[in-house]
Design a protein around this nucleic acid. Structure first.
Lengths: 216, 216
DNA sequence: AATCGGTTTGACCATATGGTCAAATATAGG
DNA sequence: CCTATATTTGACCATATGGTCAAACCGATT
């Protein structure tokens, strides 16, 4: 997976190797499908050692979830700073989300699936991750929207509704990729498919559609 | 769950009861998390009887998946027939998708998750379901889009790109509901939340945004 | 060399789980 | 009533899985 080259509590190698392995496994298989043995194999160690470093499957899972969420709710921020117009901001946002999720396509589905299945614990983790964000993505987004409404760049819209449409449009492709591939195969609409080319087209399409949708 | 009151191969009660139970369990827990015992309990029977009717977990799962997919890719069709303008068509489509998924919020996530995790078998099922559609949803959608472009109601757009943005916008809320609820709680942006009121607002917002986004 | 803390491992355990089977029970037809 | 067929059940099995433990190993310090 290799999402967390940056310093994240454990700088030493072993814990990190295990966490990367655990992420791969949990994201691929979900909580119920993930196997401690399989995580150990991926990490190149044996099962007791797994328990030595992370007491239980649950503990390991929680740390994994925390990291994945922190990454997922954080990566956009760096790419949208200092954009003056809403147009620029929107473009940067879309590019950032699509590029990043295209490289880690299972993450959005993983987070949503586990959240809608899981109990208090996982929601607590989400809550914590969100509260640690400074500033929160949602706030940056909202600020930009409101500013653009005030300057008259865009017409009045409900920020939450717009954000949901934006995220839905950006994330849908990677989440539904198997369906789209199958549809494409069956209808022939996709021709000979070039993923990275398609993603560029997708960025452009989302931007155009949404910007036309809101501009005054 | 009660999705299939209509005749679907087994008219008798037992098989149907079991299938409903299996759907609830599989949708809630996924393939790996679902337990045959739990399905039996939900159906009010015991485990050997489950195997008597459906030989194995895999067989039962495949039937479940087939039915869920057939439902998911089919329900829209009835609601969008006979719409003259693209405007009407789009509105009916959005209303239909949002209403239906709001009642069965786990289904989109279930399908996407299992597809991106599963192997040949589940993709084969998807392929079959799609090929059995007459006409396919995708074709109806495409026809309407092309007609609207020809009459000049909307500007030229790539059909696949538009469909993806549309579906993403419609489905995102139910898929990400736990995240949105948490965000709302944390930022106070949602106030005292009324789900059905919000869904109405959502339909309107999606329609306005997308229609403005494409109209000439 | 002896010792001490941290690390690694093979052997093992308790439980959960998908699945089976022969016996029992119900149901329908003669 | 009797029999054949379909349904139902308790008891059981093999395996997988999360987890444990005592013993071994290793590197540094004295």
């Amino acid at each position: 997976m290799m999402l967390f080259d940056d310093v994240t509590s454990e700088e030493g190698s072993k814990e990190k190797i295990i966490l990367e392995a655990a992420m791969d496994e949990f994201i691929a298989e979900g909580w119920a499908g993930a196997r401690m043995q399989s995580i150990a194999d991926r990490a190149g160690i044996n099962k007791p050692l797994l328990h030595y470093y992370f007491r239980s499957k649950e503990k390991l899972y929680n740390q994994t979830v925390y990291r994945v969420m922190a990454y997922f709710f954080g990566f956009v921020l760096g790419n949208v700073e200092g954009k003056d117009s809403f147009q620029e901001f929107l473009r940067a946002f879309i590019d950032s989300v699509i590029d990043e999720t295209a490289e880690n396509p299972r993450i959005p589905l993983f987070i949503m699936q586990e959240l809608s299945r899981g109990g208090e614990t996982i929601r607590g983790i989400l809550s914590q991750v969100l509260s640690e964000q400074n500033p929160p993505v949602t706030e940056v987004m909202r600020t930009n929207l409101i500013r653009a409404m005030e300057t008259g760049e865009i017409r009045p819209v409900n920020p939450i509704q717009f954000i949901m449409s934006l995220l839905g449009s950006c994330l849908y492709f990677v989440m539904a990729e198997p369906i789209i591939m199958e549809l494409g195969k069956q209808t022939g609409l996709l021709g000979n498919f070039d993923r990275s080319r398609f993603l560029e087209e997708r960025k452009e399409a989302v931007f155009t559609l949404l910007y036309n949708g809101v501009r005054s």
